[in-house]
């Protein structure tokens, strides 16, 4: 209670398909002073369905549009800087995270030029290679730093046109939910970013084994990463780890490469 007024507390829920549902299981965990939703396997599967549905539109959006939408996310984050600061290590981390979103936003319409190529084949064909998003990506968010660590994995995956499911940090999930609220009020289409809170030991294997998930980012995985990789092999998932702090190659690790042979003739 401050100034004689009782604060209105926030209910921290999941973020699936652009909506904020409670866990279908009705379970919560008490964390950082709040009852945070404890997502079930079914919630995880719902998130995959939502992501798959959103992938088509998001990946087909123009690169210019995706860049603008991501920049818009930076704007909505900026106005929530105070709330973010309370959910992570403070203002400096928030500033880093927002600047990171701006940096990646600018990559949207440059990726194909830096990662793609025109290939001089010996024959009457215009042959070119372009990066395309791999599809639905599960991201196991790094535990620390709660906000910037998450943004460092989310931004490169989303800017390339993927739809993502984030498994928030077990112990510090509030930053992820705050981020979901910023996403919801930006122009990111519903389902492109989905956030699950709960126990990662329970949820990560479900996403690693899911046949409609194309890639899994294990950067933040704790415990038995090898077991997740074994599950991921069932549909030849791309297993991604952070290599660099900020780089177009971090985007590339969530991308496929398509090569097209187009005929040339009179």
């Amino acid at each position: 209670m401050t100034g004689g007024r009782l604060a209105v507390r926030k209910t921290y829920k999941l973020f699936i398909g652009g909506a904020f549902p409670r866990s279908e299981s009705g379970r919560t965990l008490e964390l950082e002073g709040y009852n945070v939703a404890r997502a079930s396997r079914k919630d995880a599967r719902e998130a995959v369905v939502a992501a798959r549905k959103a992938f088509g539109g998001w990946s087909a959006a123009t690169a210019y549009n995706r860049g603008q939408v991501l920049y818009r996310l930076a704007e909505t984050m900026e106005t929530r800087a105070g709330a973010f600061a309370a959910a992570c290590t403070g203002r400096r981390e928030v500033a880093r995270a927002i600047d990171r979103v701006v940096w990646y936003a600018g990559w949207a319409d440059k990726l194909a030029q830096v990662l793609g190529s025109a290939n001089p084949v010996a024959g009457p064909y215009f042959n070119f290679t372009i990066p395309e998003p791999t599809g639905v990506v599960a991201i196991i968010a790094p535990t620390e730093p709660a906000l910037d660590g998450l943004v460092a994995r989310l931004a490169p995956a989303v800017v390339g046109g993927n739809a993502v499911i984030i498994l928030a940090s077990d112990d510090h999930p509030l930053a992820a939910i705050e981020l979901a609220e910023a996403v919801a009020t930006s122009d990111v289409p519903g389902g492109v970013v989905n956030v699950l809170t709960g126990l990662r030991s329970e949820l990560a294997p479900v996403l690693a084994a899911h046949m409609d998930v194309n890639a899994i980012d294990v950067t933040g995985a704790d415990g038995d990463v090898a077991a997740l990789e074994v599950l991921a092999a069932e549909n030849v998932k791309r297993v991604v780890r952070a290599r660099e702090d900020r780089s177009p190659w971090e985007i590339a690790s969530f991308m496929e490469l398509k090569t097209v042979w187009h005929p040339i003739g009179r």
Binding site: S117, N119, P120, V121, A122, G123, Y125, N127, T129, E256, L257, K258, T259, V260, W261, H262, P263
Partner: peptide, 16 residues
Amino acid sequence: GVVWGNTFNRFDPASP
């Protein structure tokens, strides 16, 4: 990963 227009099974060292 590879799409051929008006051709098929064409390969080249320069083509991923």
